[in-house]
Amino acid sequence: MAHLKHPDSRSTIHMEDSIVISHHHYDDRQHVLRLHCPQCASHAVHGQFVHLQCDRSLLLRRPFSIMRARPDEGWIDLLYKEVGQGTMLLAKQAEGSVLNLLGSIGNPFILHEDKPIRILIGGGVGIPPMIFVAETIRQQYPSDTDMTYAFMGSEISFPFTVLNSELPVPGVTAHHAIEDMENISIPSRLASLRYLTGCYRGHVTELAEKFLQTLSPERLQIAEIFSCGPRPMLYATKRLAMKYNIDCQISMEEYMACATGGCAGCNVKITGPDGPAMKRVCVDGPVFDASLVEL
């Protein structure tokens, strides 16, 4: 007992009083929140999230994906949409407000060396982790061009600067892209069921399929999909991956209380080789192999 080794998971999540550095408000009740939280920022990786106290009046924290982290400057960015009481109260937090957070939490997306063609599919507030993945890919593979493509869908206006793309995406005629992606030379395209100039009119998975159709069987074999968004979109993404027989990692959402693995409140059903099991989105996920998740 004296030499018992404590699990490696100990002390991996930081509890910090973060300070609101800036809070930008976009159309359709979307917001980008920059928080000063040096410990979390220096550990954050693509696909992880924070568990944030949105307001002292609430009993539960709220989980939000990390969109971007700058360890050198000690901040992270979150992008969120107002959907209920917690996010509404969060939207009222002004610069200088102190918000306690737990972070960074969860398993990141895995960038497999043998799958260098990376297709990112994000929907709505599932876009933030896709931005983080794109930036990580660019950092780890600075000279890979024509290998990573991002497709983003939204039924409300995009809370990003959108511009005419100079980076071609095979099979796709829509020409609008996200500036942040363009700046790191990752071609991106947008989809919406609404009529938005420069965007593909339809589901984001249909847009991604236009691109997949142009890939040779050899290139499909070394492709992998990374996805985050609402459940129906994840379901369509999983089916798309099955149709083209490519691997697919998805980030899941579920209601959370503790976000440390303690309450079993956030479990989703995973069916692996050993049969069905319940896995916690917070610490076993939020990223899972799409083929194992019941959607």
Binding site: R10, T12, I13, M15, Q39, C263, V283
Partner: peptide, 15 residues
Amino acid sequence: GCVGFGEEYTRIKGF
């Protein structure tokens, strides 16, 4: 039911 099987909260530094 709130702390899993005893080790979960030790993930948090300082706990």
